[in-house]
């Protein structure tokens, strides 16, 4: 079995974002990371490969982005992916990214395709499902566990108010959320050394129009200053919530 993990490259989640002319991210000083949910997906893929009984031959990472994203791809290889595919395009929206991934994956079939449920930049939660639809294969979303049991894929999918245990035939796309693994795997020194020589296949994009476009960014409106209640009289807080905020 072969697994591919689609990874996105996002600003570190603690970075304060700024924009140039209100329509372009100011990249000065930004630390780029693997999107947190994609990192969890990659970790789970590698855990599955670690158990020979699962018969996973290879874990590949796929990314849509220009050459500048290669440090992020190398990090994924250092964590343990065997090889990588980079589609040499600047992502313009989720539909564009999913279509590019689908083009490449059509010609390089995988059994399990993993995508993080969301990227911490555009918060769209759409690439994984779009990719499955472009490929015409099943998808399971909000996946919080993934196991191979006697050759069958068994997943947990979160539903509003509970979970379901679901079986799905390969090939399919799992759209992964928290819970899939405990903690993201950290690259070892040996992993970092080995990553330098692991192959990155660069593929050129197909011509395609995005369906959406960000025309303007705005910063969140500043919140009113916090009103402090005397710690000797916490009951005052409840009075304020009842009479001033009127929320209880």
């Amino acid at each position: 079995m072969k697994i591919v993990v689609c990874i996105s490259h996002v600003p570190d989640t603690t970075t304060k974002v700024k924009f140039v002319n209100d329509n372009k991210l100011d990249e000065t000083g930004i630390q780029w990371i693997i999107n947190p949910w994609d990192e969890l997906s990659l970790t789970r893929a590698l855990e599955l490969k670690d158990d020979p009984a699962n018969g996973i031959e290879k874990v590949t990472v796929a990314h849509v982005g220009p050459v500048g994203a290669e440090p992020t791809i190398r990090k994924a290889l250092a964590i343990g992916a065997d090889d990588a595919i980079r589609i040499n395009a600047t992502s313009s929206d989720a539909y564009y990214v999913a279509a590019q991934l689908a083009e490449v994956l059509k010609n390089n079939p995988f059994d399990i395709i993993l995508c993080g449920i969301e990227s911490s930049d555009f918060n769209g939660s759409t690439v994984g499902g779009m990719l499955a639809e472009f490929l015409g294969i099943p998808s399971v979303s909000s996946v919080s566990s993934l196991n191979l049991v006697n050759g069958e894929v068994i997943l947990t999918r979160e539903i509003d108010g509970g979970k379901e245990t679901v079986a799905i035939p390969v090939p399919f796309v799992a759209i992964v959320q928290k819970g899939i693994t405990k903690e993201p795997r950290i690259p070892s020194m040996r992993g970092i050394m080995m990553a330098r020589t692991k192959p990155i296949l660069v593929s050129e994009p197909v011509s395609l129009d995005a369906l959406t476009e960000v025309v303007q960014y705005e910063m969140p409106k500043p919140r009113a200053a916090c009103k402090f209640v005397n710690p000797e009289n916490p009951a005052e807080l409840i009075t304020l919530l009842q009479n001033e905020a009127k929320v209880i």
Partner: peptide, 24 residues
Amino acid sequence: ANNNTGKALAPRLSVRLKAGVGSG
């Protein structure tokens, strides 16, 4: 809805209907 089910269906519908998505 932007919940588990909505997140599972909206992207597939997007491709099927060639419709852009505004999430959340």
